[in-house]
Design a protein around this nucleic acid. Sequence first.
RNA 1: GGGCCGUUAGCUCAGUCCGGUAGAGCAGUUGACUCUUAAUCAAUUGGCCCCAGGUUCGAAUCCUGGACGGCCCA
Length: 487
Amino acid sequence: MEPINELIAVRKEKEKALKELGIETYPQDRGPYITTEEISLRFGTLSHEELEKTDERVSAAGRIMSFRDFGKSTFVHIQDRKGRIQVYVRKDVLKNPEYSIFKRFDIGDIIGVLGRVFKTKTGELTVLAEEIKLLTKSLRPLPEKWHGLKDIEERYRKRYLDLIVNPGVKEIFIKRAKIVEYIRRYFNERSFIEVETPMMQVIPGGAVAKPFITHHNALGIDLYLRIAPELYLKRLIVGGFERVFEINRNFRNEGISVRHNPEFTMLEFYQAYSTYEDLMDMTEDMVSSLVYELYKTYKITYNGQEIDFSRPWKRITMEDALKEFGGLDISEFIDTNRLTSYARELGIESPEKDKRGKLITKVFEELCEKHLVQPTFITDYPVEVSPLAKRSKDRPEITERFELYIAGMEVANGFNELNDPEDQKDRFLQQIQEKEEGATMDEDYITALEYGLPPTAGEGIGIDRLTMLLTDSPSIREVILFPLLKP
RNA sequence: GGGCCGUUAGCUCAGUCCGGUAGAGCAGUUGACUCUUAAUCAAUUGGCCCCAGGUUCGAAUCCUGGACGGCCCA
């Protein structure tokens, strides 16, 4: 604990003094209080005269955010979950407590106010306080009223302060909640069932990523925090649910950046008897209608560029994207050695270690990603980078898979699920042979496939990244309440 | 992992190039003020200048190492 500074000492003294005057500093209190928003809605449209005539009292509660003292009267603003309202406290109107006691309150204290609503001569809706109750004494000074809390590190470490003094921050998380709520409703309406699958897995599968390791003492075994729920969700399709979705955390023990947090939220959904084309349609429909629901338009701004979500979205194969955005005709690179040297020129590290399909994908990412600003589905991913996706009927080296890019960011990934147990086993073995990160043979998953996974398409959508886009946030940390920081 | 930048009062920031008593605004404290809203006016308190070394008569400032954070790259 840091040393107690003077400002805190002064407040503790005040708290003591209030207690000695018989004022409870941490009472339990249930109001009832109405919100500042409700007050605005009910009284905001009334004129001075109409307000004069109403005899009604309102009772609101909130944190004191400003304190303008005029001697025998004081203006304060209180802030609740919905906003702020001004409170006018006059020595000759305030009945309880005595005005002199109210004057001992501080910015940051949480109070309840009872009084009539009126409009000041500047027209601001204001509660004229007759009674004020201290609900919680605040012992620490808030950040400055005008500049707020700017220090990014401090904003994340003390998110509660960020939320109190930077109003836009709360809006982001309200929007995030709306996004998740909308998605949940979207799937529920289409008879998907929401499920929860293990966070702690014996075999971490469903993606290529380094897992976090934990330990179960009683069983004496290591467990892995999941990197993806995929293999469990598909077991449920085998089990006959046919339509499932899960919105939950994944954990990947990798770098931290503006787009990566070690724990992040993923939507995954699987639908039997459908194709990845169906999922592209569904994604377009869901995301564009979500954007419309939030903004009543399909066009939003992200990072200074306009993004248009109106349908249809561009669909283009990886090969064609390479041609269109990178000026690269992959048919001229049948010779993989040529591709390898090209990749090296692009700055891709040790390209000779990568198989052809992986290399093509890396070149694609290098050349094309940044150009994919408008919502774009890239299709036909190489089989080497798609170990759980079904091969294309005509071209076994590519899969029936897409990724969705928006603002140069990978937002979604979906494909026809590989349901041939032989092929799946081979792909797992291939990964293990190539010593890919976290590659393990999940025998039980193969067994499940042997019982029969119906033709299914599945998809994952990164909720954090989607929220970044829809709140114009430059960093994933702006959309995660408590992003990971070194202690 | 590499490069660049940042860390000074509770908060927002000057001061660092070019070493010489640590500053401002807000917040706090005291006083004045019964329609203000970044209220105003007067006075005033408050510092581990991120940490540890080094250079120097003297270091917030220069040098070395480290911590934490930001951006970019991998």
